[in-house]
Design a protein around this nucleic acid. Structure first.
Lengths: 161, 161
DNA sequence: AAAGTTTATCATGTCGACATGATGTTTGCC
DNA sequence: GGCAAACATCATGTCGACATGATAAACTTT
């Protein structure tokens, strides 16, 4: 039940990126550290979000990921869409023909629940979550900031570690 | 998202069995015909429901599956529990530590949605669905009845087909 | 006890989600 | 140009959900 790990990662990652927008592009390794998710797999997920028009990616030093739209314009539905098509079949007993015309025994009751879930994803924006939960938002940003400090981009040729 | 096919089958099957209770035990083949699901796989699913105390099974002629409890006492949650443990992790971004104490950015809003879904499964009973949807209930029962007529249990030695 | 019907179980197969490590490609900086 | 940093991609691997066909076990009827 609920979201696939990939869809969960995509949501969490977008929240990280949006929350750290003021600090510039966010790198895969930084996000991976916050999520506790595997780097390359996450990279693929983020790339998918880029193809979906949700993120913009840049390579090389000063590269990383940024939002394309303002967080107020980005719904959760758009973020998870590539991984969890929301409008999919949703008859709770799996009847292919279930609908208002030929409802299964649970159709009425379940439709109303399913609709409220869909509404949550369609109406809630990234901005909503960020502004309602400053504590969680700051926590993720701090993890990223301190990762940058300890792993500072040194001038070329200087000593590392 | 939503239920696994196995959980969907278990719900649909239990509805069939409950709806045909007056006609005696229901056989796997009959349920499989209604669901359009593979016989042996469904058999395994029903067996799991039997081990879970939801169904009673009998072998041989006059065998099949019956409910253990009255439909009024059987919630949807109990039916899907063996396949879709309802109380599982439900943080929408997959944070292991997410909870009221250390909420993720979406915790508040999502918890309320998740709670209403859980309530649906915990409060809705098989009897509710049967009585609210006589049309769907009868349709399934008729499929089973006509299957029995055309595939009648003939006296030993008589001609088949 | 024999035959037939039904569930129970086993061995096996397929497929997609999730993951990993190595390698390619682009970018910015000296 | 050359190097290092970062994303992009590829080959490969693991695991569980879903499925199938064959066989075993249990029950009913005769």
């Amino acid at each position: 039940m609920w979201l696939s790990t990939t869809a969960q990662n995509s949501l969490y990652a977008v929240l990280c990126i949006a929350g750290s927008a003021d600090d510039g592009p966010v790198r895969v390794d930084e996000i991976a550290a916050v999520l506790g998710a595997p780097r390359n797999y996450l990279s693929k997920t983020l790339h998918t979000l880029a193809r979906a028009g949700v993120l913009r990616s840049g390579r090389g030093p000063a590269g990383g990921f940024q939002l394309v739209d303002r967080p107020e314009r980005l719904t959760l539905a758009r973020v998870i869409a590539p991984f969890e098509p929301l409008s999919e079949r949703r008859c709770i007993v799996g009847r292919p023909a279930c609908g208002d015309a030929h409802p299964c025994a649970a159709h009425r009751r379940w439709s109303s629940i399913a609709a409220s879930v869909e509404e949550f994803f369609n109406k809630t924006t990234i901005a909503t979550l960020l502004s309602e939960n400053p504590r969680a938002t700051n926590a993720a940003r701090e993890v990223i900031r301190s990762a940058r400090l300890s792993n500072r981009r040194m001038p070329h040729g200087s000593v590392k570690r």
